[in-house]
Amino acid sequence: MPLFEIETEAHIIITWAETEDDAREVVSEAYPTDEVVRLTRRPRDSWVISKGALGLTDTKLDPCVIARDCLSKSAGDKVNAIRLYRMETGSDLEHARRAIESNMVMGW
């Protein structure tokens, strides 16, 4: 069965389907308000996402690793961890707050 890549305004969906019409049906069932922007039949039956293309190959730059390290250095003090994260990454206050808070929720 062919593999299709379907892009809508809000999603990229990878699915197997017999025909393009079947692939469009997958989108209409899962996301009835989304309109198909692009539909491509993939040349192979598997899908690979390059971690390098997503910027995930260098763990030093992984925001979760940095956030957890900042939380550790600050002994769990959220405000201090945010300050450390901003200094470490150059992020703005809102981005740093989200990174620290999301890692606190994950059970630091």
Score class of each variant (00 low, 15 high):
Ile49Pro: 00
Glu25Ala: 14
Thr40Tyr: 01
Val105Cys: 05
Cys64Met: 12
Ser50Leu: 06
Cys64Ser: 15
Ile49Val: 15
Asn103Phe: 09
Ile6Gln: 02
Glu25Gly: 11
Glu101Val: 14
Ala75Gln: 11
Val65Cys: 03
Arg38Asn: 14
Pro2Ser: 00
Gly55Leu: 06
Glu94Gly: 00
Gly52Tyr: 04
Glu25His: 08
Asp92Asn: 15
Ala99Cys: 15
Thr57Ser: 11
Asn103Gly: 01
Cys70Gln: 09
Thr33Cys: 02
Lys51Asp: 03
Ser50Thr: 02
Cys64Gly: 14
Arg42Phe: 06
Ser28Val: 04
Arg42Pro: 00
Leu56His: 04
Glu29Gln: 05
Glu88Asp: 05
Ala81Asn: 09
Pro32Ser: 11
Gly52Thr: 15
Ala53Trp: 02
Glu7Tyr: 10
Pro63Thr: 13
Arg41Asn: 01
Ser74Phe: 10
Arg83Asp: 14
Val26Ser: 07
Asp62Met: 06
Glu101Asp: 12
Ile49Met: 01
Ala23Glu: 04
Leu3Glu: 03
Asn80Ala: 13
Asp34Leu: 00
Gly52Arg: 10
Met1Tyr: 11
Glu29Tyr: 02
Pro63Ser: 05
Pro2Lys: 00
Ser91Thr: 13
Glu94Arg: 14
Ala67Glu: 04
Ala67Asp: 09
Gly107Asp: 01
Val26Tyr: 03
Thr89Trp: 10
Pro43Lys: 10
Asp62Glu: 08
His11Gln: 09
Ser102Glu: 03
Ser46Lys: 05
Asp92Val: 13
Ser50Met: 07
Glu25Val: 13
Leu54Met: 13
Ser74Asn: 12
Ala99Glu: 15
Val79Gln: 15
Gly90His: 12
Met1Glu: 07
Ile66Met: 05
Phe4Ile: 13
Arg97His: 09
Gly90Thr: 11
Trp108Lys: 01
Arg41Met: 08
Met106His: 10
Leu61Gly: 04
Ala23Trp: 07
Thr33Met: 06
Val37Lys: 03
Pro43Val: 00
His95Glu: 14
Asn80Arg: 15
His11Val: 07
Val37His: 11
Ser72Phe: 01
Arg38Trp: 00
